[in-house]
């Protein structure tokens, strides 16, 4: 698989390996993600999506390999890049006893943002959180928590946004609102989004490119339309199952 290293590339991963003792979680990963588009990182449970995202964020050190984000070496310049990135996952919590406003204030200071009060007010308005700002995070519903987590991930207006199942366990209405907000954010800022998801409707709607993982390796890439055509299927769900079960394209 050849690497596209043009200036339109925002994430470049090459020869990436991660071993945990005797287990190989990531087994020679190579992929690129384009600037200004949403790229889906797909795969079954244990395929290596979350491990890959953790390495892209520097939370997990690779055993070997290279990661370049926004043209810089992530392993060497992690803290310089983290100002320009952010992350959201329903599996990583925010402090429960702090209010939404307090949580966002803490993260705003961590990113050393100017005019923080205005920034929080704007995010709250955009994500329909204004009424929730002074409620403890722990007392919110799952959908409200996801919106807060998204607000946290957008607080620094990231150029690269990594989302791990951002609409998991949300009702269709809330999930749609989240997707709409992400699309609007991307149109406004030109941000690049890497999205790990099991929701194929979400992938078909939001993603221009798809990277399919199995057992820690890239097994296929392409746009949703190209993958549908290659596998002779009418939905990404069927393509997902074909790839997960190692069925060859028709």
């Amino acid at each position: 698989m050849s690497l596209d290293t043009s200036k339109d590339t925002v994430i470049e991963v090459s020869s990436l390996y991660k071993h945990f003792d005797q287990v190989t979680a990531i087994n020679g990963l190579d992929f690129t993600a384009r600037r200004g588009v949403t790229t889906a990182l797909l795969g079954g449970n244990g395929a290596g999506k979350t491990t890959t995202i953790a390495m892209l964020l520097g939370l997990l050190l690779p055993s070997s390999g290279n990661i370049r984000i926004l043209g810089e070496d992530m392993l060497k310049h992690r803290h310089r890049l983290l100002h320009r990135m952010n992350f959201s996952s329903p599996y990583v919590d925010l402090p429960q006893r702090l209010t939404v406003r307090q949580n966002l204030t803490v993260f705003g200071h961590l990113y050393r943002l100017p005019a923080l009060k205005q920034r929080i007010a704007k995010l709250a308005e955009d994500l329909n959180l204004s009424q929730l700002l002074d409620r403890p995070y722990g007392k919110l519903s799952a959908g409200q928590k996801t919106r807060v987590s998204l607000a946290k991930s957008l607080i620094n207006e990231p150029e690269v946004l990594l989302l791990d199942e951002p609409t998991a366990s949300l009702d269709p209405d809330t999930a749609d609102a989240i997707r709409t907000h992400l699309e609007q954010y991307q149109q406004r800022t030109g941000a690049s989004i890497l999205l790990a998801s099991h929701n194929m409707t979400e992938v078909e709607r939001m993603c221009s490119d798809v990277i399919m993982l199995r057992a820690g390796k890239v097994v296929d890439t392409g746009s949703p339309d190209a993958l549908l055509a290659r596998y002779g299927r009418t939905s990404m769900e069927e393509v997902f199952i074909d790839i997960a079960r190692d069925r060859a394209p028709q």
């Binding site: 964020l57 520097g58 939370l59 952010n86 429960q96 050393r112």
Partner: peptide, 18 residues
């Protein structure tokens, strides 16, 4: 340990906090 109990370390260390 408050940070560990609240499962917040992942968020803290994807920020520029050193």
């Amino acid at each position: 340990m408050e940070e560990m109990w609240s499962r917040n370390l992942g968020h803290l260390f994807v920020s520029p906090l050193r």
